[in-house]
Amino acid sequence: MMAEIHAIFPGGSGAREAELKLLALRAIQVQGGTDGSSLTATVDEEVVDRALHLIRQSGGTPE
């Protein structure tokens, strides 16, 4: 099963870093928002906790 995660990055800081880390985690898909301060990632349910941790570690807030 897949899970979709939305995240906001205040001021855009860390969004690109999180995107690269999520891709390294083998996210199915990562889309950066047009504003540069958000992203949406589709990940396998087995790695949801790790994905959320990477987002927070990069300065983001999962929604």
Rank of each mutant, 00 (worst) to 15 (best):
H6I: 01
R16G: 04
A27N: 02
D35Q: 05
I28A: 15
R56E: 05
H53V: 06
E17M: 13
T34Y: 12
H53C: 04
P62I: 06
A7E: 02
M2P: 13
R50I: 03
P62C: 14
E19R: 08
D35L: 14
T42V: 14
A3H: 06
I8T: 11
L25R: 01
R50N: 12
L39H: 05
I5P: 06
A18P: 02
G36N: 13
T34S: 12
R56A: 00
V47A: 10
T34H: 09
D44F: 10
E63R: 15
G11R: 10
I5T: 00
S37I: 08
R26F: 09
E19W: 00
V43M: 01
A7P: 03
Q29R: 15
E19L: 11
A41T: 01
S13H: 12
M2D: 10
G36Y: 13
D49I: 05
Q31F: 04
L39K: 08
V48K: 06
S38G: 10
I28F: 13
G36E: 04
L54C: 07
G59R: 07
T34I: 13
G60A: 10
V30F: 03
G33Y: 05
E46V: 08
V30R: 01
R16S: 10
V43Q: 01
F9H: 04
L54Y: 06
H6G: 04
A7Q: 12
E4V: 14
G14H: 00
A24S: 07
